[in-house]
Simulated assay, not measured.
Amino acid sequence: MLIIFVAPPGLFREGVARLLGELEAHTEVKCFDYGTDAPESETGADLLVIDGDQQGESLGAAGALRRVMPRLPVLALLTKIDQATIDAFIAVGVTGCFDKSEPASALTSALRVVQAGATYLPPALLTFTNTIGSPSAAHGASRPASGTGAGAGNNACVLTPRQIEVLALAARGESNKSIARQLNIAEGTVKVHLYTVYKALKVGSRGQASIAAARLEKVGDAQLHHALDAQLTIRRLLSHLSPSHFRRGDVLFHKDAPSDALYYIMRGTIGLQEIGVEVGAGTILGEIGLFSPDHRRTCTARCKSDCELLVVSATDAMRMYYQDPEFATYLIRLITRRLEADKSRTRM
């Protein structure tokens, strides 16, 4: 593991570098001063830690490194803890901010939080309530309390529609990069929205924000809206599957054959022979047969080109249907649209 530590030379840098080196076995720490181009050559780094007290220099260094390594987790060490300072660091892509007054053991926890891709905020910045959890949540803990959730509901009114969208996607397990792509915004903007959401809901981690989101009617409405608009990220649900490859002319299934699988097209074109329809990447096939009374295929599907597909067994598809309400809503909507399209073709 390679950690880059950017700070002025001296006792502080040497002491923190020693702590960083103890994060896990075989950890290498490379120290640099502000303004040097050397860190930008360390493209294999796993973590960036930066002394944020010289705010102008540290913001410039963090921003430059994030441009070279956009996925690099960054933790800023700060003496001044206030909203404006934290906002400035989050805006340039910093993953977490650590209060220098905290003990060394807390630094280790903060490093592991940002290394895992979560956001770390100083406990001094957050006011926790029994409704959501305890101050340990700021250290990446996930201990929801047994309250009724009223506090989260009361704070939901201060969230903007965009923040609700971001929270809904985060609660679904989407990464910051995926959220940015779906909402057509910068990844740094996603982090700023999540930071604001954490404060509004009085939570300190992505996990606790997801727990709070489950209690918010607006978030549920946003998730339902995505499903009804066919914006569900199927790849998120099927990320555990490896693609299967088919050649042009291969038949996926014949009409009246048993419906034993669901298909998601990643690449290529599939022709549905009996109805004369061709479908491409991002399309689900085989869903109607799963729910038909005799579980039979309603048409023949043939590859019109070389194809790359994700294949889900009928058993796994039904499990997803029962376990993920958003997927179920999406699937019902999809089946309804296709049945309506079949009726329209019949009338012609």
Rank of each mutant, 00 (worst) to 15 (best):
E217N: 13
E102S: 08
P144R: 01
S178N: 03
A110G: 00
L126I: 05
Q208D: 12
L107N: 00
Q208V: 14
S146W: 15
G96D: 02
N155K: 09
V219P: 11
N154C: 06
A91S: 15
V166G: 09
K202T: 08
S178D: 06
G207E: 04
R206F: 15
Q182Y: 15
T108M: 02
T127V: 14
D99H: 05
V158F: 10
G153T: 02
L126N: 13
A88M: 03
F89W: 10
F128V: 03
G96E: 00
A106K: 06
S175W: 14
A186Y: 11
V192R: 14
A186Q: 07
H226C: 10
A110Y: 00
P123I: 01
G204K: 03
E217A: 06
V113I: 00
Q163W: 01
L224A: 03
V94Q: 01
P135G: 06
S101A: 11
N176V: 10
L111G: 14
N130G: 11
T160I: 04
A213K: 03
I179F: 03
Q182E: 11
F89Y: 08
S210K: 01
A124R: 02
A171N: 10
T160R: 09
V113L: 02
E217F: 08
S142Q: 05
A88K: 07
N184V: 01
P122K: 00
A209V: 05
A209S: 13
S205L: 10
A110E: 00
A213V: 03
T127P: 12
H226K: 11
G207N: 01
G207C: 03
K100W: 12
A84W: 12
D82N: 01
A88W: 00
G133C: 07
A137G: 02
T119G: 12
A200Y: 10
G93K: 08
P103N: 11
A110V: 00
A214M: 09
G204L: 12
T119D: 10
S101W: 10
N184I: 15
L183R: 07
L201V: 05
P161C: 10
N130V: 03
K199Q: 14
P123M: 08
I86Q: 04
I211D: 06
S136Q: 11
A171K: 15
V190P: 13
S210H: 04
K199Y: 10
A200S: 13
D221V: 01
A209K: 02
A171L: 13
K218H: 06
V94T: 09
S101Y: 14
Q163L: 02
S109H: 09
G153A: 09
S142H: 06
I185N: 13
G149T: 08
A200R: 15
I81T: 04
G153Y: 05
Q163R: 07
A106P: 13
L224I: 10
I86L: 05
F98E: 06
I179Q: 06
H193Q: 11
A168P: 07
L111Y: 08
H193V: 06
K80S: 04
A209F: 07
A209L: 02
E187F: 11
D221Y: 11
T119P: 05
H225M: 11
L121V: 04
E165M: 09
A88Q: 15
L167V: 13
A200I: 09
D87V: 09
V92P: 08
L194K: 01
G220D: 05
T189I: 07
